[in-house]
Amino acid sequence: MVLHRKQLFFLFWILIPVFLMIAGPISAQNRKFTVVIDPGHGGKDPGAVGSNSKEKDIVLSVGLKLGKFIESNHPDVNVIYTRKDDRFVELNRRAEIANKVHADMFISLHCNALDRRKTSPQGVETFVLGLHRSKDNLDVAKAENSVIMYEEDYSVKYEGFNPNEPESYIIFEFMANEFLDRSVYFASMVQNQLVTNSKRINRNVRQAGFLVLRAVAMPSVLVELGYISNREEEKYLKSESGQTSLATSIYNGFKEYKREYDKKSYVFNNGEKQRPQSAGVSSSSGVTNGREYRIQFMTSSRKYENGASVFKGLTPVDFYTDGKTYKYTYGSTLSPGESKELLKKVRKIFKDAFIIEFEDGVRVK
């Protein structure tokens, strides 16, 4: 197959982050795990528009909540946002932000939509970079990639790529994504949490040609939080409880991914091997070896899901069981000092909260 000059230019542009990664990687042993949260659209680009809401507002709210969950529970993680307010950020700039800090994970947040003349489906789907195998996947990619048309001189900047021309996507056939396995692994965890925890309709993990994913040199996913064109789903996407639940589910997926990442990595401190910090580990989601500290704030004979009103806005919450009793905890740290800081936070809501210890996943009494 012969590539045209414009396609060759585009291939060169889109492989630049891979060249940068090879030329100057930073050892994971000498820095914090870094996650970049990318709320799509913004500013002059509203994204998909519902009956009374805009994609750019919904994804920003969910993104900020997700970042707070990670920051509150993972002191060993550095959270960076491509935008924290209503501003327009070009696609290549979003990738540049992630590549510049050599991020370990890139999470892009979006909402789906169909033409209002059509009956809109519902559900969540999590995408990884790849060659779309269906027209539906291509349509989603075209909609999200069309953001480049808000940029000045986009036809020059993204030489040879037109988001509305299917033939432009043939270039993705030539791109081997070194991070695909890890991206699919993370995407599967996120999708599972969105379905089981947030109770959303499952539209599965999919592959498609997203420019923003191709341009980042790290494991990455693009999450479609739901259909803003569906009236019922739009109400959920706009609601505080819906946004909190979605952010919690994505966080839970991140927590699982980070736990597996830590198992395979070592963090070195003063020349000695130290266990990496892992947040929110409990019998509700698995255990790790070693001593950890959590904040216990409530016991109940009932099992509650994250986001339940009984938690008074405290999230994400884990639990362990003692006989038929559920004991609910917040946070997790390997540091006694950090556990005291967590306790101060929780006691503002639950005055009787206290610190508990676990050894190899078992409560120390």
Rank of each mutant, 00 (worst) to 15 (best):
I228V: 10
I16M: 13
T325R: 12
L64N: 08
R200I: 02
P121N: 08
F210N: 07
L91C: 10
Y158T: 09
V281P: 05
G290R: 10
A143T: 11
K68F: 00
D45M: 03
Y261V: 09
Q274N: 09
A208N: 10
E357C: 03
I170Q: 14
Y320P: 09
L91M: 13
M1I: 13
E152S: 12
E151T: 07
K44C: 12
N145V: 06
G123P: 14
S239N: 04
M175A: 13
V89Q: 08
Q296R: 12
N197Q: 11
W13G: 15
L211Y: 00
G47F: 04
S239K: 04
V101H: 08
F319V: 02
E55F: 02
E125F: 00
R182H: 15
K348I: 08
E256Q: 12
M105L: 15
F106I: 14
D76K: 02
G209I: 05
L91V: 11
V59E: 03
G47W: 07
A141N: 10
Y236C: 05
C111T: 12
P25R: 15
R31M: 06
L131C: 14
R203T: 00
P163A: 09
C111L: 06
E167C: 07
P75W: 00
T82G: 03
P17E: 13
F174W: 13
E152W: 06
N270V: 00
R31L: 02
F174P: 14
S61N: 12
S283G: 11
R294E: 04
L342Y: 12
H132M: 11
E159H: 13
Y185A: 14
P46Q: 02
S146V: 00
E224C: 04
